[in-house]
Design a protein around this nucleic acid. Structure first.
Lengths: 214, 214
DNA sequence: GAGATATTAGCACGACCGTTCGTGCAGTTT
DNA sequence: AAACTGCACGAACGGTCGTGCTAATATCTC
C-alpha cells in the first residue's frame, strides 16, 4: 500500500535519532562536538546509553550526524529563505541579513554552530573536519554565486574579485557572531551591518542602488 | 644575595611549570582547552600525574595558566615587535602584517590559539571565558589605539569610526587564519593582505600614503 | 650536621567515558 | 500462530578523567 517505510519501528527509531540530534546540536554549539557524550545525551533525554549508541554506531558517526543535522538547520534558517529575494544585490543582502538574524536569534544556543565546531576541528584531520570544510565551502560558494549574479547583472564592477569580496563579507559575519557571543553584547551586529554595506557599496557600480539602502 | 627567588627548589618548580604550559598551549591550539588532561601532559613530559596536578592545583587553574602563557607568547610574537614601527599607519600595518605572519608561521601549531579557544569557551560563562574576553579586548584596544594615533596624525579621515575599522581588520585577520587552517591552504592570507590594504586605503586621507604601499 | 620547606612520586578513590553483550518487546511478514 | 526484524534496555568491560592522601626527595636555613 504505502511506501516501503510504513514500518512503525523504524519510524520510532528515526524519531529518537531526531531527538538525540536536536539535543546534540544544541550542546555542540555551546561546548563543542568534543563535549558530546553518549551517556550525557542518554541521561538528558531519558534514554539508555546503549540505546543512543545503537542509533549511531560510533561516537564519530554521532558527531558526523550532528554536523549534518546542523547543516540542515542552517540551510533552512539562512539559505532557503533567500529564494524569495530576486537574484543580484538584493539576494546578497538577504543572505547577509539572514545570517546576522540567524546568529542574533541564537538558532543554535551557542551562536553559530559552525563557528564553534570549525574552530574545534580545523586543525584535526579526519572525517569531521572534512565534513566541516565541505559546509564552509558550500556556504562560501553560495555567497560567491549570489555575488556573481550581481556582477553579471551589472550591479557590481566588472573587475570585482568575487572571492575577496565573499571572504570579506563572511569575515564580518563570523566576527560579529564571535564577539557578540563572547562579550554578550549586540553592538558587533550593528558594526557588521554598517561594514557589509560599505563593502558592497565600494564595489557597486551604483552606490545609490536601492538594494544598498540598508 | 640575589633576589628572593634564588631558591633552587622553586626554580625547579617553575621550570616544570614552564614545560607543562609549553606543551599545554600546543595541545590547546589544536584540540582546545577541553582536550587538556593532566594525565596526558604528565605522560607526554615523563612526569607523574600528581606532580603536574600539584603545580596548578586544579584543572581550571591549569587552563587559566595556559591562557596566560598563550597571551605572553602572542604578545611577544605580535605586539612587542611593532614598538619599532613609527606610530600611525606604519604601526597599524606592522600589527596586521605581524598578525598574519604569526598565523602563517604557526607560532601555535593549530594556528591562532585564541581563535581556537575563544570559540570553545565564548558561550560558557566562567573564569576561562572572562580571561579570553580580556585578551580579546586587549588586542582590540591595541589595534584601535594604533588607529587612533594614525587618525590623530591626520593619516585617517577625521570621521573614521575607529571601532568599526578595527573590527573589520580583526575580522579579516581571524578569518584568514580560520580558512587557512581549515582548508590547509595559504590563499586566504593573500586575500587578507589585499583586503587590509583596501580597508585602510578607504579611510586614509592620502590613499597614496607610502605606508599603504604594501 | 639538624630541621624546615617545596617539589615530585606513588597510590587509591569515585565518576564518567565509549563500547560490547545478551535480552525483551513491538511491529511486520508469512 | 510462528518466524523474523529492529529498537531500546541493563549490566559490564577496560580506560581515563580530576582529585585527594601519604611518602620520598631535593634544597635552603641554621
Amino acid at each position: 500500500m504505502a511506501g516501503p517505510t510504513t514500518d512503525g519501528r523504524v519510524l520510532r527509531g528515526e524519531e529518537t535519532r531526531r531527538a538525540v540530534l536536536h539535543r546534540a546540536v544544541g550542546i555542540a554549539s555551546v561546548e563543542g562536538l568534543g563535549a558530546l557524550s553518549i551517556g550525557r545525551l542518554a541521561t538528558d533525554l531519558g534514554l539508555s546509553k546503549s540505546g543512543v549508541f545503537a542509533g549511531f554506531g560510533s561516537k564519530e558517526e554521532l558527531q558526523l550526524a550532528t554536523v549534518r543535522a546542523a547543516r540542515r538547520i542552517f540551510a533552512d534558517a539562512v539559505v532557503a529563505p533567500v529564494a524569495d529575494a530576486p537574484p543580484g544585490l538584493p539576494r546578497v543582502r538577504a543572505l547577509c541579513e539572514g545570517w546576522l538574524a540567524y546568529s542574533r536569534a541564537r538558532v543554535f544556543p551557542g551562536g553559530c554552530f559552525f563557528y564553534e565546531v570549525t574552530a574545534e576541528f580545523d586543525a584535526r584531520p579526519g572525517a569531521v573536519r572534512d565534513a566541516l570544510a565541505g559546509c564552509a565551502r558550500e556556504w562560501s560558494d553560495t555567497v560567491t554565486a549570489a555575488l556573481a549574479d550581481a556582477r553579471a547583472a551589472g550591479a557590481l564592477r566588472p573587475d570585482t574579485d568575487l572571492g575577496d569580496l565573499s571572504f570579506a563579507l563572511i569575515a564580518v559575519l563570523e566576527t560579529a557572531n564571535s564577539q557578540a557571543v563572547l562579550h554578550d553584547d549586540a553592538t558587533p551586529y550593528e558594526r557588521a551591518g554598517r561594514l557589509l554595506l560599505r563593502l558592497l557599496r565600494a564595489e557597486a557600480t551604483d552606490p545609490a542602488d536601492p538594494a544598498l539602502a540598508w
